[in-house]
Design a binder for these strands. Structure first.
Length: 228
DNA sequence: ATCTGATCATAC
DNA sequence: GTATGATCAGAT
């Protein structure tokens, strides 16, 4: 059972805000679902539940969650101090010439242009976790500059085939980490030495400290309002 | 305690 | 197989 898609951003945000303080278990039951005992074998459960509850498009389509609104949904687990417990995966990284696209045209930028952040509080039984206050966000000029600088460096290195050098320590707000069913999973790519090599797929992740900044709502000190 | 590398389920 | 949704678990 899936809610109807929201028709406007306001409607979407209103729905998300109305979930604040609610436990995931009852939300799931309202949709005819049962909360799993833990997330070890259901890592995407929280995100999928909120998609259903908010009327996201769903499916594995390479599109954002609310295509009509151009909004991407991200759930983020918070610790006791209200800080993200985890980094946030944005999308898979291209290992070929596609990674040489311009920032303006890249997929990561498109996905982050408008994000509905839904914090989830608590650890332990997923059904006992509680929805926090949702926040609709677009990168400020300053945030976008940070994202762009990292993205250009990281995808530049990918485009050069420097897979051995690249690891999760690169990037200030973005990082590249494995994104696959296992480390045995391989994808063909052209190395810096112009040889075909098999490399583990990777994804772009937002560092937890960057997401913390976004959620804190602290205005950028440049005083620039968010982009639309 | 935090970060990096590894991993799990599901849809198409 | 590749995309979606992420968290797990060992290293630092």
């Amino acid at each position: 059972m899936r809610a109807n898609p929201p028709r406007t951003e306001d409607e979407l945000l209103g729905r998300a805000l109305s979930l604040e303080g609610r436990r995931l278990g009852p939300i799931a039951e309202g949709l005819g679902l049962r909360a799993p005992a833990d997330l070890r074998r259901n890592k995407g459960w929280v995100g999928e539940l909120l998609e259903l509850a908010l009327g996201a498009a769903g499916g594995a389509a390479a599109a954002c969650d609310f295509p009509d609104l151009g909004v991407e949904l991200k759930t983020v687990p918070l610790d006791e101090r209200g800080r993200p417990r985890e980094s946030t995966c944005v999308c898979v990284a291209s290992l070929g010439p596609e990674s040489l696209a311009s920032w303006e045209d890249c997929w990561l930028r498109a996905k982050l242009a408008r994000v509905l952040w839904v914090p989830v509080l608590g650890r332990g039984a997923p059904g006992s976790r509680v929805v926090g206050r949702a926040r609709l966000w677009s990168p400020s000029v300053r945030e976008e500059a940070l994202l762009r600088a990292d993205w250009e460096e990281l995808s530049g290195q990918l485009g050069l085939g420097r897979f051995d050098e690249l690891d999760a320590r690169w990037g200030e707000v973005l990082q590249l980490r494995p994104k696959a069913a296992s480390s045995r999973e391989r994808r063909w790519a052209m190395s810096a030495e112009a040889e075909w090599v098999q490399v583990n797929p990777r994804g772009f992740y937002l560092r937890a400290r960057f997401v913390a900044r976004v959620l804190s709502g602290l205005a950028d000190l440049d005083g620039t309002p968010p982009n639309q």
